[in-house]
């Protein structure tokens, strides 16, 4: 059988173009999937880590006295945003109580009442106790300043007023202990964060 050279029709070129385009598209989709696999699509980014904590002045729930963030600088600070209508906040309350008793001499603990009434918060504290002061955020805008996405959230702020991280779920004793140890660790000799 002799060799017969058939010229490639333009239709075949078009098919090749289609195939190449489809391959590129599929590769692109796979790349996006590969990047997204293992990440929580509902996770809200937190951009304030390593940034100076926003300043605030809020009233204390117990005596109404103003508390200014500027006066809290110098000692590590644990800020817990909570509400009485939030079930997980109720669950984690004993952990915060325990931590305030255990680490209260090294770290300042403050609770911030989020989207709740003073009356509700007072009733809750009267029933469950609080070893650390609670602050009232009447319009909850201070929580937005801190990038809160819901309650409970616990922020860890170092002695220089830098946000070292937050836990956006009910905190457990182990996480609390580890975070506080990082917070109270002496500064690294090169001046970097501990």
């Amino acid at each position: 059988m002799s060799d017969v050279a058939r010229p490639a029709p333009p239709r075949r070129t078009l098919l090749w173009l289609f195939a190449a385009g489809a391959c590129l598209f599929v590769l692109g989709v796979l790349a996006v999937w590969w990047k997204a696999f293992g990440t929580d699509p509902h996770r809200v980014p937190f951009e304030l880590e390593g940034q100076p904590a926003p300043t605030f002045t809020l009233r204390r729930l117990d005596n109404g006295e103003p508390v200014s963030f500027d006066k809290l600088k110098g000692n590590p600070l644990v800020l817990n945003f909570w509400a009485t209508w939030c079930g997980p906040c109720r669950q984690e309350h004993p952990v915060l109580e325990w931590a305030a008793g255990r680490f209260g001499d090294k770290v300042q603990f403050y609770g911030v009442v989020f989207e709740d009434s003073e009356e509700n918060a007072r009733r809750f504290i009267a029933e469950h106790g609080a070893r650390y002061p609670q602050l009232i955020d009447p319009t909850s805008t201070m929580a937005v300043d801190y990038g809160v996405t819901g309650v409970p959230e616990t922020y860890f702020i170092d002695r220089d007023g830098i946000i070292r991280g937050k836990v956006a779920q009910p905190i457990d004793p182990q996480t609390m202990t580890e975070r506080i140890r990082e917070l109270v660790a002496p500064p690294a000799p090169d001046g970097g964060s501990p």
Partner: peptide, 8 residues
């Protein structure tokens, strides 16, 4: 808002 929550 972007400074706190990113482009999200």
């Amino acid at each position: 808002f972007e400074a706190r929550y990113g482009e999200f």
